[in-house]
Design a protein around this nucleic acid. Structure first.
Lengths: 204, 204
DNA sequence: TAGATTGTTAATCGATTAACAATC
DNA sequence: TAGATTGTTAATCGATTAACAATC
C-alpha cells in the first residue's frame, strides 16, 4: 500500500463536513462530480482519495451520503471520544474553547492549562483553568491524547516538551514558532502570520 | 520563469520570522544548513526557495541576517502598510484583533465589522466595531486590501461575496466552510477542524 | 591554499489528473 | 438497452532533494 498523504486526510475532513451538512438538509445521494464542484476539487481527486480506504460508491449511481459519512468518521478515527487539552487561556485559547461547542464530533477539550496565577481557577466554557503544573497528572487521569498550544511563542517549545513528556504526541500549534519535536510526534502548525504574508505576496 | 509555489511563499514567511528573532538576539550571519536545522527543512530547499528571487548569500560565508530580512520583507510585500478588515467580532475575531498587537509588521487591522447590533460600537483593541452595512464604504475609504472572515459558517459565503463586491480580493477564512469565489480572488483557509481531524487520523 | 557554502542542475519523489473499462 | 458514474491505471505535472561546480 502506498503512503496516505496529509493532503488526502485533510480533504477527507473537508468532504465529511460538507456531507454532514447536506445530510441534515435531506440529501441522500451524491456523485463525485457534484461533490467536486461544491468543494473546488477534481472529481478524480475525490475518487482517488476514497480509493485508498475502500469502495464506498456504486457505479452509475454515486455515493450514499449517510453511509459515506459513517465511513469517513471511521477512517478519521472520530467514532470514539478523543480527549484534548488546551494550553494557554488567553484570548485565542478562550475563543477556541468556545468554538469547540459548535462541533458535532467527538473531539472534546477536557482540560485547560495556564501558568498565569490570575487565570487559574477561571471558568471557560465550564472548564476550570488548571495550573500548568497539573498538566502531567491530568493528562494521565483524563487519558488526554492531543494538545493544543495557544501560548506566546516564547514559551511554546517549553509547553511542547512538557506535553510530549506527559505522553501527548499529537499537537496542534497556534504559537507562531517552529517546534522541535522527536520523530514520532505529530505536529500541525496553524500559522496565521504565514497565511497573511502569503496573501500579502499575492497582492502583487 | 517558473511559477512560485504557495509552499515556497509560506516557507519564506517562516524563514523571515526566525531571522527577525535571531537578529534581535544579535546574530549577524547564518548558513542555509544552520537555518534548515532550526526550521526542520532541507538546506537545499531554502537555497532553492531563495533562488527564485535573487542571490542573497555569499559563497563560503552564508547569509547576512539583516540583509536577508530586508530582502524577504520586500519579496513578501511587507514594506508598505497593508490595511485589513476583520468581519465577525465574536470570540475568535476579538482574539485575532488582540493577537495582531504582537506583530511587528505592516499588516494592520483597520476596521472590524459585525452584523449583531449588540456588538456594534463596542471597542476592540481601539477599533470601534462597525455595522456590516458600512463595509463597502469603509473598505474604499480606508483602502482596505485584505479581509479576515471570522463569522459562523452559515454566513461566511455571504460575507465573502460582500468583500469581493467591495473590492477585497484577498481573504483569510477562519469559518469552517469552503468558499466559492471567482478565479482572481485569493483565499486561504484556516481550517482548525481539518487539522484536528488530521491529528485524530494519525492517532492510528 | 584549504575549507565552507552558495546557486543551480538534474534526478527523484510524490501528488494530481485524464481517461476508460467495469458495472449499476 | 442507454446513460451515468465508479474505481483504477497510466500520464502528467510539480515539488523536493542530492550533488557539485563556482567562488568567497
Amino acid at each position: 500500500m502506498n503512503e496516505i498523504s496529509e493532503a488526502t486526510i485533510h480533504r477527507l475532513s473537508v468532504y465529511l463536513r460538507f456531507l454532514q451538512r447536506i445530510h441534515v438538509s435531506g440529501i441522500q445521494s451524491i456523485s463525485s462530480v457534484e461533490l467536486a464542484h461544491r468543494l473546488n476539487v477534481k472529481s478524480s481527486q475525490i475518487r482517488k482519495d476514497l480509493s485508498y480506504f475502500g469502495d464506498f460508491g456504486q457505479k452509475g449511481v454515486g455515493y450514499n451520503v449517510e453511509m459515506l459519512i459513517q465511513s469517513l468518521e471511521s477512517i478519521l478515527n472520530l467514532k470514539q471520544k478523543i480527549a484534548v487539552c488546551l494550553v494557554g487561556a488567553g484570548h485565542l485559547g478562550q475563543a477556541l474553547c468556545n468554538y469547540n461547542l459548535y462541533q458535532n464530533d467527538n473531539i472534546v477539550i477536557e482540560a485547560v492549562f495556564d501558568s498565569n496565577k490570575d487565570k487559574i481557577g477561571m471558568k471557560i466554557n465550564d472548564k476550570c483553568v488548571q495550573s500548568i503544573n497539573e498538566l502531567h497528572n491530568t493528562v494521565r487521569k483524563e487519558k488526554i491524547k492531543m494538545g493544543i498550544i495557544c501560548v506566546p511563542h516564547t514559551s511554546a517549545q517549553e509547553v511542547a516538551d512538557l506535553l510530549i513528556m506527559s505522553g501527548v504526541h499529537h499537537i496542534l500549534n497556534f504559537a507562531p514558532t517552529t517546534l522541535k519535536v522527536p520523530e514520532h510526534v505529530v505536529v500541525r502548525e496553524m500559522d496565521f502570520t504565514a497565511e497573511l504574508h502569503s496573501l500579502a505576496f499575492f497582492l502583487r
